[in-house]
Measured scan of single mutants.
Amino acid sequence: SSRTRFTDYQLRVLQDFFDTNAYPKDDEIEQLSTVLNLPTRVIVVWFQNARQKARK
């Protein structure tokens, strides 16, 4: 499976959201998916990875 290449804009939006809320609800994931034009699955994985990094 090929890795998703995020744009600077997508990363900024995801990071800004994460800084406020590391555990987005389903409807928030749907909204991010629509706004960023990314599959919900990709967003879910991004947040999982971001939470892992934040824990270190």
Rank of each mutant, 00 (worst) to 15 (best):
Q15C: 05
L36C: 12
L32G: 00
D8G: 06
Q15A: 11
V44Q: 11
A50H: 03
Q48G: 07
N21S: 06
S1R: 05
K25W: 03
L11T: 10
F47K: 01
E30W: 04
S2K: 13
E28D: 13
R5S: 13
D19N: 09
Q52T: 12
D16M: 04
I29P: 00
Q48V: 10
V13C: 07
S2V: 11
D27Y: 07
I29A: 05
T7W: 01
A22S: 14
T7M: 05
L36T: 13
S2I: 10
N21C: 15
N21T: 11
L11A: 09
N49R: 04
N37K: 13
F18M: 09
Q15F: 07
L14W: 00
I43R: 00
D26L: 05
V44S: 12
Q31R: 11
Q15W: 04
T4S: 12
N49P: 01
W46E: 03
D26I: 03
N49L: 07
F47S: 02
E30G: 13
D26Y: 06
N37T: 14
D19L: 11
Q52N: 07
R5N: 15
V13N: 10
Q31F: 11
P24L: 03
Q10H: 09
R41N: 14
S2T: 14
V45W: 12
S33I: 00
N37D: 10
Q52K: 10
A50N: 11
K53D: 14
Q31W: 07
R5E: 15
V45G: 13
T4D: 12
L11G: 11
E28K: 12
D26T: 10
S1G: 15
T7P: 03
F18E: 02
R5I: 15
T34E: 07
L11R: 05
D26P: 07
N49K: 08
S1V: 15
D26H: 11
I29V: 07
R51S: 08
K56R: 07
K56Q: 07
E28W: 02
F6W: 05
Q10M: 08
D16A: 10
I43W: 00
L36P: 00
A54P: 10
Y23M: 13
R41T: 13
E28V: 04
F17A: 12
K53G: 13
N21I: 07
F17E: 05
D8Q: 14
A22V: 09
A54W: 06
V35L: 12
R51Q: 05
A50K: 04
E30R: 13
A22T: 08
T40V: 09
V42E: 15
D27K: 11
T4I: 12
R51N: 02
K53N: 11
E30T: 11
T7V: 05
T20H: 07
F18I: 08
R41Y: 12
I43A: 05
T4F: 07
P39C: 10
I29L: 11
D16I: 02
V44E: 14
K56Y: 13
V13I: 12
Q48L: 03
V45S: 14
R3F: 15
K53P: 10
T7A: 08
R3N: 15
Y23H: 10
F17T: 09
V13A: 12
K56D: 10
V44I: 13
P39V: 01
D8L: 06
R51F: 06
Q52I: 11
D26N: 09
F17V: 05
V45D: 15
R41S: 14
R51D: 04
E28L: 04
R55V: 07
N21K: 06
F6R: 01
F17N: 13
V13E: 03
D27L: 12
R12S: 06
T34A: 11
R55K: 15
E30M: 15
R12P: 02
T4Q: 05
R55G: 11
P24N: 00
N37Y: 02
L32M: 11
T20E: 06
D19H: 07
Q52F: 02
L11F: 12
W46Q: 02
A54H: 11
T34G: 08
Q10P: 02
V35N: 03
N37E: 04
Q52L: 08
V44Y: 06
R3I: 15
A50C: 13
Q10S: 04
L38N: 00
D26C: 05
A54M: 12
N49D: 14
L14C: 07
E30V: 09
L14A: 01
D8N: 04
R12A: 05
R12L: 04
I43S: 01
R12Q: 12
D16Y: 03
R3V: 15
F47D: 03
Q48T: 09
T4L: 14
R51G: 04
R12I: 02
N37M: 06
K25N: 08
N21M: 03
K25T: 05
R41G: 13
S1W: 00
L32Y: 09
S2C: 15
T34D: 07
N37P: 01
D26Q: 11
K56T: 13
L36E: 00
S33E: 06
T20M: 09
T20S: 11
R5D: 15
V42H: 13
Y9V: 11
F18C: 08
K53T: 13
A54E: 12
W46P: 02
D8T: 05
D8S: 04
R51A: 06
T20P: 02
K25E: 03
L32W: 03
K25C: 09
K56C: 05
I43Q: 00
K25R: 11
Q52V: 13
R3D: 15
D16G: 14
L36R: 01
I29Y: 12
T34R: 10
S33K: 01
L32C: 02
V42Q: 08
Q10W: 01
F17P: 00
R51E: 08
D26R: 11
D26S: 11
F47W: 03
K25Q: 06
I29Q: 03
L38D: 01
Q10I: 03
N21Q: 02
D19Q: 10
F17Y: 07
P39W: 00
L14F: 03
N37F: 04
Q48K: 03
